[in-house]
Amino acid sequence: MHPRIRRLAADYEKTQQAFAAHESIKLIETEGTPPERYVFEISIPGLSPEGERGQTPSTLHKAEIFLPQEYPRRAPFCRMLTPVFHPNIDPTKICIGDHWSAGQTLPFLVTQIAEMICFQSYNTKSPLNAIAAAWTETHVDELPLYAKEITVD
């Protein structure tokens, strides 16, 4: 079996196990055998870029992760399928960090995204959304929006 196929199969198994009974994250869709595309539903407090103030509270989010042909040497492509107001998320991509490591697991990546949605994690120095970065810097005392640790077993 090709090493990439083995890795995809292992990622799928780990992901199913990690989120089978998770209280905030559910795997709702996959594509491919083994999967190369995943859709997750993340039920956690966050913000949507709507409303008078430029954002409104939201609690249901969908994220898509696509594993490219060069994966795991190349980082996954991540994007939100629902709008999210965050300095490191724009309508076309989620900035998952400056340094991708082939040893990072898919469940770890999904929990990183959940941590971003609820502002447990953000980087205002290199934003994808400058308006959200400015808002974040003036609302630090109100963050995170969800203080409970987001973990996977």
Rank of each mutant, 00 (worst) to 15 (best):
V84N: 07
A63L: 14
Q69R: 13
Q120A: 04
R79G: 09
T59R: 08
Q112P: 13
A132S: 06
V110C: 05
Y71N: 08
G46A: 04
P87I: 01
A130H: 13
E64Q: 07
V84Q: 08
P144R: 00
A63H: 07
H86V: 00
P72D: 01
I96E: 00
L145Q: 07
A130R: 15
K148P: 12
P45T: 01
T59E: 14
C95A: 11
S126N: 14
V140C: 03
T33R: 02
I96C: 07
T105R: 01
G54Y: 06
L60S: 13
F108I: 13
A75Y: 01
F40N: 10
P87T: 02
S48E: 10
P87R: 04
E36H: 12
G54T: 13
L145V: 15
I44V: 09
F85K: 08
E149C: 11
L60Q: 09
I94K: 00
Q120D: 03
S43C: 15
R74K: 10
S48N: 15
F108K: 12
I42M: 02
L109S: 13
Y146C: 12
M116F: 01
F66R: 11
L67T: 06
C95L: 08
H61Y: 05
G103N: 10
L106Y: 05
R74T: 15
G51E: 11
P49W: 02
Q55G: 15
G103S: 08
G51K: 03
E64V: 14
F119Y: 01
L145G: 11
T92K: 11
F119H: 00
T33M: 05
S121D: 14
A75G: 04
V84W: 09
G103L: 11
Y146G: 10
T111Q: 07
P68F: 02
I113F: 05
E41Q: 13
E142T: 13
N129E: 01
L109E: 08
H61A: 05
I96G: 04
L143W: 01
E52Q: 12
